[in-house]
């Protein structure tokens, strides 16, 4: 099945090749396969797949990656607008145990 993509051309991810040391940390942490290796460094191959989780930025030791990290959650934002503090996220880390 084709991977699910959200809106195109909106994410804030940016990559500065000159700072990249090719340590490959971003390749290990990105859950959306946004990067791929290229000539001892990396390149951004599917920008629209980025979900702005911020894992790459936080784990890049040389500051070559930047992104405004956050959670893409409408109900969380609505709650915030209404001044309520409520957890929005109910996604599990893995497929959930079945109910039997």
């Amino acid at each position: 099945m084709r991977p699910l993509l959200y809106l195109g051309n909106v994410v804030t991810l940016s990559f500065d090749t000159s700072k990249c040391t090719g340590c490959r940390m971003c390749l290990a942490v990105c859950p959306r396969a946004v990067f791929r290796p290229l000539n001892g460094k990396i390149e951004v191959v599917s920008r629209d797949a980025c979900i702005e989780c911020g894992a790459c930025r936080r784990n890049c030791p040389s500051g070559a990656l930047s992104v405004r990290a956050g959670v893409g959650c409408a109900s969380g934002m609505i709650n915030k607008m209404l001044g309520r503090k409520k957890a929005c996220c109910v996604v599990d880390d893995d497929k959930p145990p079945s109910c039997q």
Binding site: E52, A69, C73, G76, C89
Partner: peptide, 22 residues
């Protein structure tokens, strides 16, 4: 409202969607 439960939405994307859809 399901955007937060999914695992492929971004903050910027949801903001854009909400501006129009809400």
């Amino acid at each position: 409202n399901f955007t937060g439960c999914s695992t492929f939405t971004s903050l910027s994307g949801v903001q854009k969607e909400m501006r129009l859809a809400l």
